[in-house]
Simulated scan of single mutants.
Amino acid sequence: MAETSIRFGILGCAGIAWKVSRAITFSPNSTLYAVGSRSLDKAEKFAADNGFPPTAKFYDSYEAVHDDPEVDAVYVPLPTSLHVKWAVLAAEKKKHLLLEKPVSLNVAEFDQIIEACEANGVQFMDGTMWMHHPRTAKMKEFLSDSQCFGQLETIHSIFTFSGDEDFLKNDIRVKPDLDGLGALGDLGWYCIRAILWAVDYELPKTVTSLRGAILNEAGVILACGSSLQWEDGKTVTFHCSFLSNLTMDLTLVGTKGTVHVHDFVNPCDEKTSLFSTASKTGFTDFATGWDPLPSKSVVATDLLPQDACMVKEVSRLVESIKEGGSKPESMWPSISRKTQLVLDAVKESIEKGFEPVQVGG
């Protein structure tokens, strides 16, 4: 049986919308159907620049995309401060929802979104693309191998890039009324998600932001770090920044093994990605080397890049609801909420002078 093509509408013409538009085109069970902007000319130009099919519709408002009965799902890449309004409306209009991260300014807002999704039986997924990369599943296999990796002991996660002067003054991610979570929301979200992924989404007991967080004059976070503590004594750290060279490192250390990946958010090469593992490693005689040496694993993604894998998966879930009467998959909103809970705690710890903060439930 042929797959049903899920028709996507896109709200706005943000830069990230280019990448997801391309992903929708690549996904075998998805169709670029409509784009809405505050300007019809802008919507038409976006569609022309991004390979929309000739049958695509253009609208001069976000409401019009929601009101189109042929739209099955909407992708929302709008500023975080607008998420709750437009995501709730999408759910109320029975549109399935792919929402850019961070999903909201705080967990209370996110709960409004999820309540609307649950009340209207629509699927929710956030736009954390690396979760859908086949490399992620391969890394999880190694972490789950008790003989090679053992018990998880600690994690270190870093995501930074160096914003230029224009970015630091004018980008929406440094504006308190648009994306007030700054680097914590934009980059720290990925670090937190990677940590939760590695611990099977068990929430930490406490979060303690590290001293030295940098905020701009408007109070938006430009750089920060945090440690997370679990009841079993496990402690992990992450750092995120708009002020440092591009780095996307994830290190997972177990009692018997280690995993390193240097581009975990966005692979250096879209078609071939790497990660390294080491198991039961020690020094050679007189500490002149390692034995055994770490090994590299290569994961090919010639068929679909990670963003298209994400779109394919959300479309599969939507199809199962539309055609098979399935219920929405609850895992995705659950892990989004847990990520938001930890993010909220990090922000609160910064605001309280880097004091430990209990993670809410």
Rank of each mutant, 00 (worst) to 15 (best):
D171I: 09
T136N: 00
L215V: 10
H96V: 05
G121H: 08
G233I: 03
V122L: 08
L250C: 01
R38K: 14
N106T: 14
T251D: 07
T255V: 02
G325C: 10
F286M: 02
T31C: 02
Q229L: 14
K94F: 13
F149C: 12
P53A: 13
S144Y: 00
A90Y: 08
K347G: 01
W197I: 13
T272Y: 07
V35D: 03
G127F: 01
R211C: 02
G150K: 10
K205H: 02
H133M: 15
L99Q: 02
T339A: 05
I10N: 04
F283Q: 10
K19Y: 14
T281P: 03
A108C: 05
M129N: 11
S21I: 13
A56K: 11
K338V: 02
F52R: 01
E313T: 12
A287G: 03
A14E: 11
K138V: 01
S315D: 04
G121W: 07
G121K: 05
F110E: 14
R211Q: 07
S227D: 00
S81M: 08
D164F: 04
G212T: 07
L215D: 12
T154A: 15
F149V: 09
I172P: 00
F242L: 06
F110K: 09
A47C: 11
T206C: 12
I16Y: 01
N266F: 01
D68N: 15
K338F: 07
H156L: 12
S279I: 08
E231A: 05
K169N: 13
D41G: 06
L341P: 04
F52N: 09
L181D: 04
D307E: 11
L303F: 12
T288K: 15
